[in-house]
Structures are given as structure tokens and as C-alpha cells.
């Protein structure tokens, strides 16, 4: 409708253990003005040296889809739980891979 809002975003990395190594997956969480009643909007923020691996939980824009977000119910659902779910999910299916250095 053309309206704009100023939102709070949290940017950082999530420590993920994949095949025995720990990687710091860069993510950004956008908190809506209706937070915590609505889940944050989450993105993977690949650096220039990374490429997004689309899959069940990540689309081509890096947007993250998780049951935890879809079934968000405060106060049980909160950021710490969300990040813990990301650590598990990304440990099985990393959302980003480093670009092959030609």
C-alpha cells in the first residue's frame, strides 16, 4: 500500500558444525513491528566468496524457511530457540557454500 516501516534487524553468524568442521554462517533476522507475535523474517547473507545453496529451507534469495518459523507461537517460540534450530538444520544442509576458487 506504499507505506514504509523502520524495522530492527539482527546481523551476525551462526556456528554450524558440518562434517566435523565449524563454519560461521552469516544470517540476518528482521524483527517486524508485531514481533514477538509474528516470527522474524530470516535471510542467509552470503559474502562475495559464498553462493547460496537453495533447498528445502532456503530459496534463491537466501530467505530461510523453517517449521519453527511457520509454527511460531510466543512465548515458547523465541530467538534463541530459532537459532538453535538453525544450527541443527544448517549442520545437515548448509545454506551456503564457498565459491570454488578458479
Amino acid at each position: 500500500d506504499g507505506s514504509t516501516k523502520e524495522l530492527l534487524s539482527l546481523t551476525g553468524t551462526v556456528p554450524v558444525n558440518y562434517r566435523g568442521n565449524v563454519y560461521n554462517i552469516p544470517i540476518c533476522l528482521w524483527l517486524l513491528d508485531t514481533y514477538p507475535y509474528n516470527p522474524p523474517i530470516c535471510f542467509v547473507k552470503p559474502t562475495s566468496a559464498m553462493m547460496i545453496k537453495t533447498g528445502k529451507h532456503v530459496d534463491a534469495n537466501g530467505k530461510i524457511y523453517l517449521p519453527y518459523l511457520h509454527e511460531w507461537k510466543p512465548p515458547q517460540s523465541e530467538l534463541l530457540g530459532l537459532i538453535q534450530v538453525m544450527i541443527v538444520v544448517f549442520g545437515e544442509e548448509p545454506p551456503v557454500f564457498s565459491r570454488p576458487t578458479t
Binding site: 553468524t13 563454519y23 547473507k45 557454500f97 564457498s98
Partner: peptide, 13 residues
């Protein structure tokens, strides 16, 4: 100091 972002090497299929 926040950790430096890193990602696994692509798995060669």
C-alpha cells in the same frame, strides 16, 4: 569482535 563468516567448500558431485 564477531566471528568471520565462513562456509564449507562445495561438495563435488
Amino acid at each position: 569482535k564477531s566471528p568471520t563468516p565462513s562456509a564449507p567448500a562445495p561438495v563435488s558431485l
